[in-house]
Write a protein that binds this DNA or RNA. Structure first.
Lengths: 340, 340
DNA sequence: GTTAGCACTCGACGGTTGACAGTGCTACCG
DNA sequence: CGGTAGCACTGTCAACCGTCGAGTGCTAAC
């Protein structure tokens, strides 16, 4: 009972925490009691007492024994969860996002433009994992001869996504025969989900329906399967990676190197694919599993287009991030994307 | 006559310059006379005299009044032009490049892999401008309905490059009519170079052959034209941009920021499109027009596939670059690409 | 519960100092 | 006359040191 009282956070302490977060986000400098005193009307000493309590509770930290306070990871999280929305000023300009969806662009293009916009608006780095096409369905297969010996093979899904692959065919190949094969493949695979294509093909082979086809040219089938697997590797988008370099926390060259290498390697996939949960996730500093992100914040939000086609959008910035601006922005964008 | 004698560079001075370049490339530290003395068998004082002459000639520089010497831009250039190949040791392993061309990949994929390989082998950043498709010819146009109201439109060239674009059609659109239009467009545009498509279409309109088509749906034509213009914007590839951060010359954060922003913006196009010349070009430090590249070296080499389809590959690194390794590598790669 | 006052702590800044590496110059040698 | 030895000079770098100021914790008073 008595302990609970000690753990309790008074309203003024909440205000103090809120102001510290917002001031630190703005200036990137540790916040001292004098600064808050002016804003709150209490004397510095009073503020200091509250600060000491908040530090004890794990919401604040000091950079050294006699410096102002900065929010801890936990402090940020508390801010995001409960403090952030108290004084509402959702004067954010969402029209730019709206504009994006006016245009009639393909999925890929929309996503690409969207993260460009986000990184531009926030000055952080944004990342997107395109919707995997597991549930997309085959709409059309095509084999287009280019010249003697080589052809290009196309797969189009019901979402209008196109994959192509080059294949070499012996020049002896009969054109009519090829056309026939394509006819059969189109009949068999029309409207089949990408994820089931391989299975379906093997089934048909077992049923002897297309045995002669297989025998005739295994290469074509393999080329198609190769293209199909490329669908399942969902596309990856990255924008504004240099933005983050202008944040004062990245004045250490080693950290910059680590970060840039991280962005370049395919590791970033791990960043976005982690977010299995449904809904916006905020991972602050040490809450990130990934070493290179230990002093960054990552906000991820999933979106879903069509039936179960899921993708993820994320923003990466310093823990000292403008959560108040970024979070509504991402939510708004994700809801729009889900309507695609 | 006498002046010419003063300008003359003795053989020993050439050796000194060569050793300084190679030593500095290796260690990134200014080279002192003592170091060279050991390698050359002359006393430090003698070397210093030669160094003073080379500095007077503009081949060497000092970082401060009493430091070892480093090569100037001019010194590097002289090295590349005449000194580099003296002691031949072309023990470079080109098998990795050979391997790349064993596989049967599309142009785009080959180029992408190639610059990945180059930046991996050199530890610098590599850039490629894909061959513009100005001379590519239309092989196939296709309009594939996805669902009510939207379709995806495909253009395939004789090189197997595919562009697609979404279009919305009023749901009233007649399917047979559409098929007919596509038939006509295919007939008209088959084997027409991309660069002449627009012209050709307008010509046909003037001849009243497809007037009804235009009247019927301008949107289709526009969508096609849009896709065509995208062919002419040749693709751009970038790899290993974080490599360069590990070079000791980039320990200044401002420079890193400038460089990374430069890589991210489309400015890099200017880097590669400059190389109008035929053959490998080495631009060292101040020889670069572009501000952000003022203390980098850029080596560009054009390649040509098919009839006049030109692209460019480039490597960006510090002026202190391993020219001896990079130049043969790029030349070898370009010659292979030209065989595509 | 709040405030004023005071001693204390730590980082940032700036000037000094000594070790060090390498040069230019001059005088000397074969 | 080209090559060499010796010496004074110069700039860099890192360590050191005192000062300054911002901000704290604590205690006593309101």
């Amino acid at each position: 009972m008595l302990k609970e009282v000690t753990d309790m956070v008074t309203n003024r302490q909440k205000t103090v925490l809120k102001l510290i977060v917002e001031e630190f986000v703005r200036t990137a400098e540790p916040v001292g009691s004098r600064t808050l005193s002016k804003k709150l009307g209490y004397s510095p000493a009073t503020i200091r007492n509250d600060m000491a309590d908040l530090e004890e509770g794990g919401f604040l930290e000091k950079t050294h024994s006699s410096s102002g306070r900065i929010p801890s990871d936990r402090g940020y999280h508390y801010y995001v969860d409960t403090l952030m929305n108290e004084g509402v000023d959702t004067d954010l300009d969402m029209t730019l996002i709206d504009d994006l969806f006016e245009k009639n662009m393909s999925r890929e293009e929309t996503i690409e433009r969207a993260i460009d916009l986000i990184s531009q608006l926030t000055n952080y780095t944004s990342v997107a994992l395109g919707p995997g096409a597991h549930n997309a369905r085959v709409r059309k297969l095509e084999l287009i001869p280019l010249n003697e010996g080589t052809s290009v093979m196309l797969v189009v899904t019901n979402y209008g996504h196109v994959e192509s692959k080059h294949i070499s065919l012996p020049s002896s190949t009969d054109v009519d025969e090829l056309r026939h094969i394509m006819q059969i493949l189109n009949d068999i695979l029309y409207d089949v989900p990408i994820s089931q294509v391989s299975q379906k093909l093997h089934y048909e082979v077992d049923q002897h329906r297309i045995k002669d086809l297989l025998a005739y040219n295994k290469q074509i089938i393999d080329a198609f399967l190769d293209a199909f697997t490329r669908f399942t590797q969902s596309k990856f988008y990255l924008s504004g990676q240099s933005n983050i370099l202008y944040q004062p926390e990245f004045k250490d060259l080693d950290r910059v190197r680590e970060l840039m290498s991280f962005f370049e390697r395919n590791d970033i996939l791990r960043l976005v694919e982690h977010s299995n949960s449904n809904g916006l996730t905020v991972r602050i500093g040490s809450e990130n599993q990934i070493q290179a992100m230990k002093d960054c914040s990552v906000i991820t939000v999933p979106y879903e287009v069509g039936e179960g086609e899921r993708g993820t959008i994320a923003v990466v910035g310093p823990t000292r991030m403008e959560y108040r601006k970024v979070i509504p922005l991402l939510q708004y964008l994700a809801s729009h994307l889900s309507k695609l």
